[in-house]
Design a protein around this nucleic acid. Structure first.
Length: 359
DNA sequence: CGTACGGAACGCAAAGGCTT
DNA sequence: AAGCCTTTGCGTTCCGTACG
């Protein structure tokens, strides 16, 4: 009976909000980022509005608390914010939309918010949950940076190290997962109780880090904001982890999950990862029919795979190619289009419980 | 000499226009 | 609806340079 360590659990609550927490700026529900000051401090935040036509399309805010800002720094930040051109971001790319922002810290801050939870960061999160199961130390996970970079599929230089770019990006990703808070309503479970309870959680919190050999002067935030550094080892606490064993609210992912980034490809175009996480999320929202079938409208598949371009035949092509990829590695046993009124076509997925299953 | 960058080449595939 | 083609964004890698 003990199928130990062929699969690892990821919290249901996290999975339910994950696709929304990672909504891209092209998503029609995403609102313009705002700077906000309240009694608790200063925030840079971006709201994702609910889509009333589907209960899984929940409202959610992702935000970064800006610590220790003087009144003058606040004014400077507002001035920088005025240079953010969201329209250019969506039409010509984020780097273009941010190029008028001179301050590197502000530029990285906006970029982190706008690209939050891209598939590479999701891959990092899954790596950490997998490690959590291996290490069996509750929500705490310790790991070496190079092991994580390896699992993400980056190639080493001749001397065996990773390039500054990859290392820098990893620290920025980890800090983004650390300091971006997700704010959403508690009433996820059944939907009808409009409980006023609000949850504020980060995906993880960095508790500790280590520097090998010569103790460098390493500052976590400074590294993320200004430099190309990465600590050699980290200990993080997974914030959603708490209680997942106790409440039994989780989905089991197969250990064979592939978190490698493909060469020459963009993180934001990792459709395989997006579809996998979206299916897992819907397994929490919808009950599986006959314990294995999931029916999802193509409209929401396109939306959650970020296939928001106008070329429908192309979107179709990518969707089906991605489905076939997941089929090839066994997550999906079968998928077929269910006839429906035009625009409301759905796809029925048969999920392989060996690879992905509810507890 | 190693470290910390920045510039630039490279390669993939998305987007979107055009054609049929 | 589908295929072809060009442009383009952007992640990755390689390399030059400044600096201690």
């Amino acid at each position: 009976m003990s199928k130990e360590h062929t699969a690892f659990p990821v919290d249901g609550q996290l999975l339910m909000v994950l696709p929304r927490a990672g909504a891209s700026i092209r998503n029609p529900d995403v609102q313009q980022p705002i700077l906000r000051a309240d009694a608790d401090g200063y925030y840079l935040e971006m709201r994702v509005n609910a889509d009333p036509k589907d209960e899984s399309e929940v409202a959610l805010t992702r935000r970064v608390q800006l610590e220790e800002l003087s009144a003058q720094e606040w004014e400077e930040l507002k001035a920088q914010y005025a240079n953010l051109n969201l329209k250019v971001c969506t039409e010509e790319g984020i780097s273009k939309g941010l190029e008028k922002i001179q301050d590197r810290r502000v530029q990285r801050l906006f970029k982190a918010l706008l690209t939050f939870l891209n598939p590479r960061q999701v891959a990092i999160v899954l790596f950490l949950y997998k490690e959590a199961r291996e290490q069996d130390n509750g929500s705490l996970v310790s790991f070496r940076s190079n092991d994580l970079l390896e699992s993400l599929g980056y190639t080493r230089a001749k001397d065996g190290s990773f390039t500054a770019r990859s290392r820098s990006q990893l620290n920025q990703d980890l800090v983004a997962l650390h300091r971006t808070e997700l704010v959403f309503a508690k009433s996820l479970k059944k939907g009808n109780t409009m409980g006023a309870k609000v949850i504020v959680k980060s995906i993880l919190r960095i508790r500790d880090y280590e520097i090998d050999n010569v103790p460098r002067d390493f500052d976590l935030a400074k590294a993320a904001d200004y430099t190309y550094e990465l600590a050699d080892a980290y200990t993080v606490a997974l914030e959603f982890f708490e209680g997942s064993e106790r409440t039994g609210d989780y989905i089991l992912f197969s250990n064979s999950i592939d978190t490698k980034q493909k060469l020459g490809s963009n993180a934001k175009h990792d459709y395989k990862m997006k579809l996998l996480v979206y299916l897992a999320s819907r397994m929490k929202w919808d009950k599986l029919i006959d314990g294995q079938y999931l029916v999802i409208s193509k409209q929401y598949l396109f939306k959650n795979l970020d296939l928001l371009g106008s070329n429908l035949s192309r979107n179709n092509q990518i969707l089906w190619r991605t489905i076939e990829e997941l089929q090839a590695i066994g997550y999906i046993l079968d998928a077929q289009e269910l006839p429906g009124k035009r625009k409301m076509t759905s796809i029925q997925f048969q999920i392989n419980p060996e690879k992905l299953r509810c507890n």
